[in-house]
Design a protein around this nucleic acid. Sequence first.
DNA 1: CGAGGTGTTGAGAACGTTCTCAAGACGGTC
DNA 2: GACCGTCTTGAGAACGTTCTCAACACCTCG
Lengths: 364, 364
Amino acid sequence: MRRLDDGSRGVATLPDVAERAGVSTATAARALGGYGSVRETTRQRVLDAAEALGYRANVLARSMVTGSSHTIGVVISDIENPFFRKSLRGITDTARSRGFEVLLANTDEELEKERSAVSLLEERRVDGLVICPADAGDRKHLREVIAAGTPVVLLDRRVAGLAADTVGIDNRKAARLATERLLALGHKRIAIVTGGTPEIRERLVRPDMKGVERLSATTVGSRAAGYRDAMTAAGLTLRPEYLSANGFRREDAVDEVCRLMDLAEPPTAILAFDSIQSLGALQCFRERGIRCPEEVSLLGFDDAEWADVVEPPLTVVTQPMYEIGVAACERLLDRISGEQRSPVHDRLPTVFIERSSLAPPARS
Amino acid sequence: MRRLDDGSRGVATLPDVAERAGVSTATAARALGGYGSVRETTRQRVLDAAEALGYRANVLARSMVTGSSHTIGVVISDIENPFFRKSLRGITDTARSRGFEVLLANTDEELEKERSAVSLLEERRVDGLVICPADAGDRKHLREVIAAGTPVVLLDRRVAGLAADTVGIDNRKAARLATERLLALGHKRIAIVTGGTPEIRERLVRPDMKGVERLSATTVGSRAAGYRDAMTAAGLTLRPEYLSANGFRREDAVDEVCRLMDLAEPPTAILAFDSIQSLGALQCFRERGIRCPEEVSLLGFDDAEWADVVEPPLTVVTQPMYEIGVAACERLLDRISGEQRSPVHDRLPTVFIERSSLAPPARS
DNA sequence: CGAGGTGTTGAGAACGTTCTCAAGACGGTC
DNA sequence: GACCGTCTTGAGAACGTTCTCAACACCTCG
C-alpha cells in the first residue's frame, strides 16, 4: 500500500495484495477474478490478503484493458416526469441485476443539453445508451454515437432513419382508441393538450395535420395522428384552436387549458398527452371552478401515483412504464453482449383505466 | 486510428490525433487539454486533427492518472419518492454544472442493497458519495468508505458518530410545529404515520418514546421526537396505538391508516411523515368514504406535485427538496476539491403551506 | 527413463491518458 | 560570440488492471 505525501494510506492495489500474499500480480488477479487456474491454498492466501488490506478492484483500470465499462448511460428529459421516473426505475433495476451501473443525465427536452450529455457519456465510455431523444432538431449526434459502435435504445420515442432499437407503446393506436372512447360518449368538441413545442404546433395546425405522423417528436406526433384518425373517421373536422402544444411544463399546460376553456366554444372533452398535462388541466379546472366531468371530461395518458386520489379520480390510458424501462434495458444489454440483428421496435400493450373523469357532454 | 479484427474502425485515440497532426502525444494532450504551452499553429493543427477523427477523450484513462473520476455516486432509497426525486434533480443539476457526472443507485431502504451499492461505487472510484442511509442496521460500510478518504454527504438523515456532512431540515422542530398546529385547532387524538419499519415502532411505543430522538433512522426518529415534544408539552399522553410504523410503501400506509380509523377511538387528526404516507391516507379515506377534513384532519410532509389538486387540497409542511439536493451536492464538491473542516450539518428552512385538509375536530 | 500432457505460476505488454523532465530553438544582452 | 532565459517540443514513466506467453513442476503412460 503506497504512502501518500500526507502520510495517509492510499487505497490498496493489486500489487499490494500480491506482495502480501507472496505471489505475482498475475496470480493475484486470477485468484480475485476467479479465472484461469490457481492452487486452492494460494487462492485462499490471496483472498485473505485482499480482505486484510480492504482491497477494492479499480473498475476504471479494468475497463481500460477489457474495453468495457459495465456502465450504461440514461438520457431522459426529466426525472420528475412519472413516465421517465418509473422507466428509470425499471432500467436501473435491470442494469443492476446484470452487473451494470447507470449514469444519469437530464435534458429538459433541450437539444443542446442532450448533445452535451451524449458526448460526456461517450467520453466516459459507456457501453450503451438509453435515450429519450428531444423533440426536435437534428439527430447527428445520435447517428454518430451509433456509428461509433455504441448501442443505443430509444425510449418512448422513435426517430425515423436511426438504426436503433425502440421500446414504447403503439402511441397512434392508443390515442385513437382514447379518442374513440370520448367520441362514443357523444363528444364532438375534443381538444388535445400535447405538451409539444410551438414548432410542433405548426405541424398540428396544417390542414388535416398533414404529415404529423412523421413528426420528429414521435410520441406527440403519433398520438396526434391517432387522434386525427379517430376524429376524421367520425366525420369531424379538426379545429386548430383545439390543438394545443405550448411546452411540456405544468404551468404551460395550465395556461393552455385555460385558453381552451375561455374559447367561445370550449371543448367538452380534453385528451391530455401525459400526466403533467393532466395535472395542469386539473389545476385549471380548480382555479376556474370548472366541474369535471360535468362540464368537461378529462382523459389522460399515464397512470401517475396520484391519479386515483385526485378529484375526480382520473380515467387514463396507461403505459407499462416500469416494464418499458426493463425492456429497454434488456434490449440494450443484449446488444452490448453482442447480439446482432436489425433494429427491433418493441411495443408494449397499454391499459385503459376507467375512473370518474369521463361523462357525456353536457347538453347546452 | 487502429483497425479492429472485423475491419471496422475503433475509436480514435490520442496517438491517432498526434500522428495525424504530426506531433507527439504530449503536445497533442497539451493542445487538447489547454494546459502547458503550445504554439498557436500546432494547437490549431491538433484541434483540426481531433475534429477530423471525431476524437473523444477517454475519461477513464484520464481518471487513472489524475486519480479523480469526476463522478459522484448517489445512493437513495427510491427515485419514486418525491423527496428523493426532487433532491436528485438538485444534485444532478449541480453536479453537471460543475463538470461531474452522477452514478445512481436505489436501495429500497434495504441495508444489503446499500452496502453493495456503496461497494460498487467505490470500485468505480467515485470522487464522493451522497447517501441517504437506510433506516437501521450497522454503518460499518459508511465508516469504511469515509476512512478510505471518500467524502460523504448524508442526505436528509443524520447518523450519529459518522464524520460526514449532513444536509436536511430540522425535523424535530418541523414536526413539533406541525403538531402544535393541530393542537391549536383543538385536536387531542393525533396519530402519526411514520413510514418507519417495525423495529422503529418498537422504539416509538416505549414509555414516552424514550430515546426515540437517538433512533438511527433520524428522520423518523427526529420527527417522532418533535411530535412527542408538542404532545407532552400540551399535557397529553402518548397512545401507542396512534404511533404507526409499518413500512414505507404506499400500501403499508393505506393499511395503517385504515387500522387507525377502525380504532374504537379513531384519531381526529393524522400527521403523515412523507408524501407517500399522505397518499396512503388519502386512499384509505376514499376507500372508506371518510370525509377529510370533516371527520379527520390530515397534515402531510412534503409538497408533492399533486398536493394541490387532490381532494381535499393538502396542507403540508414542506422541505426545500431541490435546494437540499443542491446544497448536498455543493458540500460534497467542496469536500472533493479539498475543503477541510469538521463535518457541518446544514438545516434548510421548512415552509408551511396551508390548504384545506385541516379543520377543528368534529364534536361527537 | 523419456515423452507428453496438465496444472500452476510469473514476466511483461497493453489499455489511453497525464505529467515530469530534459533538450532544442530562438531571442536578447553584455 | 558566449551566456541566459523563455517558449516549444518529445521521450518515457506512471496509473491499476487484464491477458498472453513461456516456464516450470508434477504426473501418467509407454
